[in-house]
Amino acid sequence: MSEIRIYRRPMAARWWARNPTYRRYMAREASSFLLFAYALTLIYGLWRLGQGQAAYDGWLTWLASTPALLLHLLMLIAMVVHAVTWFEVAPKTMPKTGLPERAITLGGIAAAALGSLFVVALAIWWGAWR
């Protein structure tokens, strides 16, 4: 009796590297690793916050260090890649509105820019006047 042999279509390990569309797809999906790292970073910071001022001040010192700033720069790039690609895909994933796809994408990116600007403005107010 022969073994059951399942046909497996051959696939190159870096199949996505050859085609620009697939590279874009991979950049979009890879941004999720930095988003994940950012969520864990915030949870760790809150944990230090709960341990008192000395622990939290140590955390702030780390945040101002070069490796931490570089890491957050990468996270910022990932967030921007995420926002742009999110609204590029949105017209294809959301219910049809009749609006042109380009309008949804540009509107979404504008909303993202305003949303982030709002967060920064809120933080300036929170730090300067409260």
Partner: peptide, 23 residues
């Protein structure tokens, strides 16, 4: 993440820690 993620990273990880724009 799309709407406020970049702003959050700027506040908690870049501008806030170096005291630039965000105090």
């Amino acid at each position: 993440a799309a709407l406020i993620g970049a702003g959050l990273v700027l506040v908690t990880g870049l501008l806030g820690p170096v005291n630039l724009i965000v105090p």
